[in-house]
Design a protein around this nucleic acid. Structure first.
Lengths: 199, 199, 199, 199
DNA sequence: AATGAATGAGGGTTCATTCAT
DNA sequence: AATGAATGAACCCTCATTCAT
């Protein structure tokens, strides 16, 4: 009695994503995932090695996309130039366009990767990203402001910046709204940082 | 072999706080708390009614302190006047003083209350606080800026504002540093909000 | 080492019935049931949702049969006419035939339902039945004797009547003997009641 | 800090009787008894050896009273003569007087002894009494009726007879009512038995 | 491919009893 | 006499995983 293989597999992934998002990896019950996907525990193990593999499969691609984004961004020096303007409305527009390209990275899977990965091999991802962001912040500030940013504030700001994006993605499913809110969020952070460094 | 009562009790509370902070109420294991406190499961129930009571005992006082803070703050209209200044350094100083009075509320127990209380009767506290903050934000902005703040951004900002405090308290144990960072954090949020509403 | 499903399931039900009958629902140990059925606690939960479901599965059908019996009996007015005779032997025969139809209801499961259900959703069943019987007694006596039965005695008699059936079913497994004893039991109660009301 | 010894002891006995009556020996919690008696677990063991001893102390005297009653009754042949009458009302009166002497035996402690003693050394008492009653019934019937009573019905009747008394004592605390109901109950049984043996 | 039986460890909780103070 | 700390076994239940079919 065989159902098309891909169908079961996709159903499992979909229901797992839902459960993992709601409860995180550790608190998710494989039994419940499997049940809501309409198959059985035993069959699950025909598709995935174990609970962790299931999680990894959900998140792996996202993780790689993100790494890629980071790398590309490191090459693309010059973004900041656009941002070096006094006209806030202009700022917004430029930002919005930049975000347009980045936003696909900020998906539910990304939330999973950052917030739901405790107990998996991805559980350090959030820290890695925060470190990247922190270094990024410090570097840019030094470059443009000739002021040393407070190390602790840099770290806090980095984590908060990330948290904000996660928060928006979790709360708002509508793409347009999400885009606008992320833009505002980033704008908010740029303004805040400028205030801190006393510009 | 009996140990003095208070010693065991305190040890249980201490180890419980640690475990609850790390894993949250639900994911904490009573068996592990009890073991690391150097006693047995059976004996635990001589000190506390159950797992939830243990949590509540850790957090109850903090919760009441917080409620008190809220009430007092609602009375004290006029804080904002001090903040309505163009001199950023002055701003910082006034803020710092206000925070001095508030900061005892932001303890590890407060973190527990906000972040680790899922599964207890306190699990709605975070949402309540966010709502309070959100309404507060909206009200003030309307009063001083004659502009309506974006409802979604108000909510995000409120949650992020709270998250930031939690983050600082979790990461930095030194009182002086904590105080400075919270001041900066609040300053950051004021700046960010002003940017958003386009001042 | 897998055993055929139905075998384990039936074994669990059988051993559970035994344990529940001996000790009642609350005092029965799932561990002991499971052990005597030759399986493990973990495996039990592959067959039944929980301890209470196990009980309900044993008793549900019986409960419905009983409800049906009650309903049918409420329709069938006229039984008493047969009983309104002076010839005791005739009485016995008519009773015996009526009981023949009712007796399948009085099984071990019925005992479980009445005596072992404390702590389950069926725990009020005995009281319901007693109330039904009491009202029944009172009504009939009024109809045929134009005397009001003592309310307390009605209740005691109802409970005792039920207890007697339970007792017989518990003690005697042989169907023929059981039938005879229940007949005698009912006869006994009719005689006793007549004596009380002074006929 | 000493309270009068007897006071604590009596309080423990009183609360234990209540708990044992409600839940039986096995299902009663010593913790709860001790708490409601206003003392502590540790102190309990200064007064009683253990949970079972507590039970025994409650019931021992009752048990001996009962044994005595039985013995006395075996001597007193002749009671039945009074009962050998056709006048029901006379019957009632004689019975009522006999019961007057017996009724103190049928106390809450007696209920405890019969119904709540599972798990103690008294757990066989009910069976012993039933056997005594059964033999008694059989003997009397043979003597007066020259008919052999059905052995099974004798046993059932004996148990039911005892159950009825227990039931009355449990349900009705008022002494006068209790006395009347027990009289009626016995009358009921005599009538029922006569019907069975076909008199 | 699919089923679900079986395991064993761990979850929170209650219990009677012992014993140092 | 009185306290309550300490123990260890038992309670029902959930879990991820393995494996025979």
């Amino acid at each position: 009695m065989q159902v098309k293989k891909e169908q079961v597999r996709l159903s499992l992934l979909k229901k797992a994503e839902k459960e993992f998002l709601e409860k995180g990896f550790k608190n998710s019950s494989l039994r419940k995932i499997v049940k809501s996907a309409g198959t059985t525990i035993g069959n699950f193990y025909n598709y995935f090695e174990n609970k962790e593999t299931l999680f990894e499969e959900l998140v792996e691609e996202e993780y790689n996309n993100f790494l890629e984004l980071i790398e590309k961004h490191n090459d693309e020096e010059g973004i900041e130039e656009f941002l070096d303007t006094e006209d806030l409305q202009k700022y917004r527009e430029v930002l919005s366009e930049i975000i347009q390209n980045i936003i696909p990275v900020f998906s539910e899977k990304f939330v999973l990767l950052i917030e739901g990965s405790e107990g998996t091999k991805f559980e350090g991802t959030k820290d890695i990203i925060i470190k990247l962001l922190k270094d990024h912040f410090i570097e840019h500030i030094q470059k443009y402001e000739s002021k040393i940013m407070d190390l602790e504030m840099a770290e806090i700001t980095a984590e908060q910046f990330l948290n904000g994006i996660i928060l928006i993605v979790k709360k708002y499913k509508d793409k347009v709204l999400r885009h606008r809110l992320i833009t505002e969020h980033i704008l908010f952070y740029i303004s805040g940082m400028m205030a801190i460094i006393g510009k």
